[in-house]
Design a protein around this nucleic acid. Structure first.
Lengths: 189, 189
DNA sequence: TGTACATCAGTGAACGCGCGTTCACTGATGTAC
DNA sequence: TGTACATCAGTGAACGCGCGTTCACTGATGTAC
């Protein structure tokens, strides 16, 4: 049942991207290798032909998820023209993003699990955070570099916290208020 | 081996407060009933004389942890005199708080797990968030009520996100920078 | 106040289950001649 | 280009383990008389 090199590489990609979605949707700890591989259409044994451990997959899935978000940030910034900064914020703090956790920001979806993750995963998450900050910094063209960076860090932290809190809340109105309050204050910065 | 009512009530309290610490330190999913009860000095069977399920314990532990944080906020606000708002923020965004996850903010320590928790736990978390916001709002005496509330929500979200990100980062300098950047911008609001 | 009995906090073995990982096996792919 | 053989992607049963929960049991506490 050996597959061609191209097929095997495709399988590997499918495992990583399916994992990136499942980890964001159900959490890292709560996502098992058996159900994950079965979602990809394979059995569990094949997993270890591609990865040394679940830990390695977690790190790669985080990297891929964060790269996807960096791309979204770039697109939102470009689409926003002069105010790319607010365009990124409006997109991040939207109800659409909040309700699409599976494909959204991994820092908000898995934040407290990432704190307890392995070193490689934490390094990948930090790198992703820095990359997102860098896109935001550039979208603040009129400011000095250091001031813009610091403001971008501030906005990213506020957005991650706001999205997480909005998802915890059962009351729809309260959940929307958090997003809007943070959006409003970031627009004044 | 029956214990007196007073002893039993004490045992129950000990289970809840030990759980509140373990959940914050290791996460909810990663904390088992057997090790938890053994940490309290009991065996697992007794657990179900006090709680219907692990879910019920999670909800109570979150409530207790958040009540403790509300108290800390009140103390920090009072200690800060005129600027109780910044006093709360300085305390929350301190390296001491970041490195003492076991007794720190449950929203930062378990945020992404709370999103997937049961309704009772999510309700308790939302209530706790609102209580924290309320303490912060009152510490902004000079502002109008609605403006102060919205500003308190913004600050809380930014703090939860900043603490989480600072904990993920392996690089000590970068981790401190996040805390300081957010502290700085919140002082300008 | 003293006695008999019911209550129930805590014990520890056991339950079914899903976890991450291993391994002997299969058979198509890739390679050497 | 054709043949023989090595490689290895994927299979599926099995591993030891810890999970949340149940349950028959123990014996001190609480209560009724």
């Amino acid at each position: 049942m050996r597959k061609s090199k191209a097929d095997a590489a495709l399988t590997r990609q499918q495992i990583v991207s399916t994992a990136a979605n499942e980890f964001r949707l159900n959490g890292i700890t709560a996502t098992g290798i058996v159900p994950l591989m079965s979602k990809v259409g394979l059995t569990q044994g094949g997993f270890y032909k591609h990865f040394e451990s679940k830990d390695q997959l977690v790190a790669e899935a985080c990297t891929v998820a964060l790269e996807g978000l960096v791309t979204k940030f770039r697109l939102a910034s470009a689409a926003g023209g002069e105010d790319g900064f607010m365009s990124i914020i409006d997109s991040y703090l939207s109800e659409a993003h909040r309700d699409n956790q599976e494909q959204g920001c991994p820092l908000a979806a898995m934040g407290s699990e990432l704190v307890r993750a392995g070193e490689v995963t934490r390094q990948a998450s930090s790198q992703g955070f820095n990359d997102l900050v860098e896109v935001m910094r550039k979208s603040l063209g009129r400011l000095g570099e250091e001031q813009a960076r610091s403001q971008a860090v501030f906005a990213m932290a506020a957005m991650v916290g706001a999205l997480t809190m909005s998802r915890i809340m059962l009351d729809e109105e309260a959940a929307s208020t958090v997003l809007n309050d943070v959006k409003h204050h970031l627009s004044l910065v």
